[in-house]
């Protein structure tokens, strides 16, 4: 997993609430047995005029010009600014895979759905929760070429005006994302504790250990 330390990048505004994971990556692309290559199908139904199919070459597909992903001003953006309850619905990790594959490193919103929020941290994406009013003011400030600097260690966002916005992040998640650490290796360091738990639990619930 890519470590997240400090990112200075263009911001793309997606001015919608309750963006669900079906919208982020439609179901037909979930048939893939691979983890990479979902970026071209990110927001497929909002992004293209035609119906996307897996393994389709997207370079010639007709674009929905009004959709923000197709706006030349926001090409190369690595930070997505959006509204409340982003990532609701299905637990598909294909949603953060598609965002990451497209090039997004961070998503800023007033709130996120729990499973999506958790999945982001497993894929090098930093989801940042800010007060709805702060998100609203960022939407208002945002113009072509608008950039933010996100510093995970300091837990700050720096705006072009030099304003600093603090954000919260759990220590455990921050440590793993900042260092790009593998969850499995870290968890296996606790193998003795897991085994001890199993021995103790087997006494209380032997039917689960037959």
């Amino acid at each position: 997993m890519q470590a997240f330390k400090k990112v200075t990048a263009k911001v793309m505004p997606l001015d919608r609430a309750n963006v669900d994971t079906d919208a982020i990556i439609p179901k037909q692309f979930l048939k893939s047995i691979r983890r990479a290559g979902f970026g071209p199908y990110l927001f497929d139904e909002w992004r293209y005029e035609d119906v996307g199919e897996p393994e389709m070459d997207c370079s010639q597909r007709p674009l929905k010009k009004d959709f923000v992903l197709n706006n030349p001003d926001y090409q190369g953006a690595e930070i997505l600014l959006t509204r409340e309850n982003f990532g609701c619905g299905s637990s598909r990790e294909h949603a953060p895979w598609a965002l990451e594959d497209y090039g997004f490193r961070a998503v800023i919103a007033p709130s996120f759905a729990d499973i999506f929020f958790n999945n982001c941290f497993k894929n090098g994406i930093l989801p940042i929760i800010l007060e709805a009013e702060v998100v609203d003011s960022l939407f208002k400030e945002l113009a072509a070429g608008y950039q933010l600097t996100i510093d995970l260690e300091a837990q700050t966002i720096i705006t072009p005006k030099g304003e600093t916005i603090q954000f919260d992040v759990d220590e455990t998640r921050k440590y793993r994302l900042y260092n790009g650490l593998d969850d499995i290796a870290l968890t296996l360091l606790q193998a003795d504790k897991i085994k001890a738990y199993e021995v103790e639990r087997a006494k209380r619930a032997p039917w689960l250990f037959t």
Partner: peptide, 21 residues
Amino acid sequence: AFGIGTSEVELALATQCLTQK
């Protein structure tokens, strides 16, 4: 009972545990 993403499917397979808040 709760839903998880694929990284945690792998984690639960490998360790029988998940880190949760």
